[in-house]
């Protein structure tokens, strides 16, 4: 971790218009909580199921895509990354520092709003904590995956969007066998293990889920650093 890179990444991602998009999205998450509570469906379990569906299958992949690509993709696209790379700083340190900022952004803009929405829906403390831990785990994995994607390809946003919409939203819910390789299912498994019985159902064993989450974060972070080390800057001639 390098404080200068953390500071620069935080300003890059929070200084521009992106921060308003993120803030608007997190407001939507909270608003869903308020709306469900106000409509008074009565059943807290049903509302939580809706929150789970919206937060885990749509919002977290989307937030992960925005901040995971946002901390490094634009710099690679416009070439300003050269000002970071022309320094005697380990490429792994650069990746880890940028990742820390991305995960912190996910925490503030997606994980906390999810927890707030759960509180508004009248969930008990254990359930709120479960949603928080699960969302953070999913957010971290998405950040790593999308940051890695940005280093590997210029089309990270398109590929990431297709992945988030098609894979996480559709394939995982339609084809049961694909759930083992769905970040969303790993996170739900973590959530289910913390929440009281019956609130959330999971399809992946909790030990396997934690293993996969940790493995993807660790290997993905390391590999992104290795790829950044051999990043070829496009030149005009």
């Amino acid at each position: 971790m390098n404080r200068t890179i953390v500071r620069l990444a935080a300003r890059a991602i929070l200084g521009g218009k992106r921060v308003w998009l993120l803030a608007a999205l997190s407001l939507v998450l909270v608003a869903i909580g308020v709306g469900t509570a106000a409509l008074g469906s009565g059943s807290s379990a049903a509302s939580l199921e809706a929150l789970q569906a919206i937060a885990f299958s749509t919002f977290l992949p989307l937030f992960g895509l925005i901040v995971g690509t946002g901390v490094i993709g634009p710099e690679i696209d416009d070439g300003s990354i050269v000002h970071l790379l022309a320094k005697p700083v380990s490429r792994h340190t650069i990746v880890q520092s940028k990742l820390a900022v991305a995960v912190a952004a996910i925490l503030g803009f997606a994980v906390l709003p999810t927890m707030v929405a759960a509180v508004i829906m009248g969930a008990d403390a254990a359930t709120v904590l479960a949603f928080g831990v699960g969302a953070l785990a999913a957010g971290a994995v998405y950040c790593v995956l999308f940051l890695l994607l940005s280093v590997v390809t210029r089309h990270a946003v398109i590929i990431g969007l297709v992945y988030a919409l098609v894979w996480e939203s559709l394939v995982g819910s339609v084809i049961p066998g694909a759930r083992n390789v769905s970040v969303q299912q790993w996170a739900l498994s973590v959530t289910a293990s913390i929440a009281p019985d019956g609130v959330v159902t999971a399809n992946v064993g909790v030990a396997l889920a934690w293993f996969l989450i940790v493995a993807v974060v660790a290997v993905g972070t390391w590999y992104a650093g290795s790829r950044l080390r051999v990043l070829v800057l496009a030149s005009d001639d």
Binding site: L8, R11, A12, G15, G16, D78, G79, S80, V82, H83, A86, D236
Partner: peptide, 12 residues
């Protein structure tokens, strides 16, 4: 290194 491309960290 002084690269040809203009892009820097415009927000600084």
């Amino acid at each position: 290194l002084v690269p040809e491309r203009e892009a820097t960290f415009d927000y600084l």
